[in-house]
Amino acid sequence: MLNFLEEWSFFGGSILLIFIGLYGVLSRKNMIKILISLGLMDTGVNLLLVALGYVEAANAPIINSVNPSNAAAFVDPIPQALVLTSIVIGTAVLALGLALVMKIYDKYSTLNISEIRGLKW
């Protein structure tokens, strides 16, 4: 029973986080809030990726004095490597987005995206 709860909390939880992030991007007016929701979505996806690679009662993929040999059960290292990269990419994109927001703010002096209609056509 516990495993069922755990499964649903991780998979369900991360998908819910993606849902909240996506809804945030689609609905919020404030540009910084849109970027925050973008960040939430990234975190949600990263959580889901690592959760997909989790193995019950296995230990972290590091060979050290605690579990010296590779015979022991390990968690899947590849999703962790992918998530490592995707977190940094997410932050890079967010940082650039914030710089753009600051520049747009200088011009329109508002963070509300619906008031920025420069590109009508």
Binding site: I18, L22, L38, M41, V45, S86, I89, V93, G97, L100
Partner: peptide, 23 residues
């Protein structure tokens, strides 16, 4: 800057879809 910001948002949403697909 606005054009780039719009593309960034859509690109961000797109990369989430892509990451889900890869996962």
């Amino acid at each position: 800057y606005e054009a780039s910001f719009k593309y960034l948002i859509i690109g961000g949403v797109g990369s989430v879809f892509l990451l889900l697909g890869i996962g």
